[in-house]
Design a protein around this nucleic acid. Structure first.
Lengths: 160, 160
DNA sequence: TTGACATTGTTGCATTTGCAACGATATATG
DNA sequence: CATATATCGTTGCAAATGCAACAATGTCAA
């Protein structure tokens, strides 16, 4: 029987297992835990400094990569609900971090962009992110880091 | 300047970047998206079949690995809130999937265990999980799969 | 042009969530 | 033993979330 990555080799099992399913090797589960912890740890840092939430940072992060984006562009790419994105944008506008205007070429679209204050915050959180990721990858061999990225990329492409 | 895994080499950049921060290489972000998608895709399958939610499946998954667990053991390990876990347990009991009794040795603790119906469901979702993970890892070289697991393990250990 | 249909973003509403307070139980300290 | 302190699970409540309905705008075909 081929081992497909979810069965422990028998010598590591103490007792006959209740099932063939091994939770600690189940990716959706492990990835969720890791992602939650990392997101939460990083969120503590920027929340303390700027008072924004995770959905708000997600939106700002997008705006750090592209001058202008619409609500749809954000939520389609980030797996955030439409309304979550819309509300994050509203809060960020109120806090003075982003501008919202209707796109003149297509008046259904909202054009989001960073204010000067938003750019400053974005730049600072960007630096914090680079530092955070540096700490995070310290335990991995340099060549493994690239490998890790490319494996994530592969799975993201396979699961659109 | 050392490349710490978050800076694109200059030849891959089309335009002068707004910042050094590259969202597509930022792990908390990428992992969150991947984890969300995988969790959601898998959730569709077991929700359709058994009508349970993600927190409920998390709890059942734990019970598939250990006969008896307390609420605390579950939420400490899974990064779920206390109340979320408690409520998942209540719903699962109502649906007839788990038994709840107070631990006689320490009456503060609740002892959760699967009913026969719960075991049947757990076994079936376990099989579905093995199949799901098989599909998922098809795009990776076999030796990469182990590597991926061990890298996740490393980062989980570094971020408790 | 008109009318049917599609897309975008916002909002109302019910559900879910996280946090804090709480009661019950256990442990430690005097 | 008596009292203070800690731990566990539940619950009330406010905030966040997801879904569906909607208005506004755009597209397409007759």
């Amino acid at each position: 029987m081929p081992n497909r990555g979810l069965l422990k080799s028998s010598q590591t099992q103490r007792k006959p297992p209740l099932t063939d399913f091994v939770l600690d090797e189940f990716l959706p589960y492990r990835l969720t835990i890791l992602a939650t912890r990392l997101s939460e740890q990083f969120a503590e840092r920027y929340r303390a400094k700027f008072g924004i939430s995770v959905p708000e940072w997600r939106l700002v992060a997008h705006l750090s990569q592209a001058e202008k984006v619409s609500i749809r562009e954000v939520y389609q790419r980030v797996a955030m609900d439409k309304s979550k994105t819309s509300r994050a944008a509203a809060r960020l506008e109120k806090a003075g971090y982003v501008n919202k205007r209707t796109n003149p070429a297509d008046r259904r679209l909202v054009e989001l962009s960073l204010t000067a204050k938003g750019h400053a915050m974005s730049a600072e959180i960007g630096r914090m992110g680079i530092a955070f990721q540096g700490e995070l990858l310290i335990g991995l061999e340099p060549e493994d880091r690239e490998k890790f990225h490319s494996m994530i990329e592969t799975m993201l492409k396979e699961n659109p």
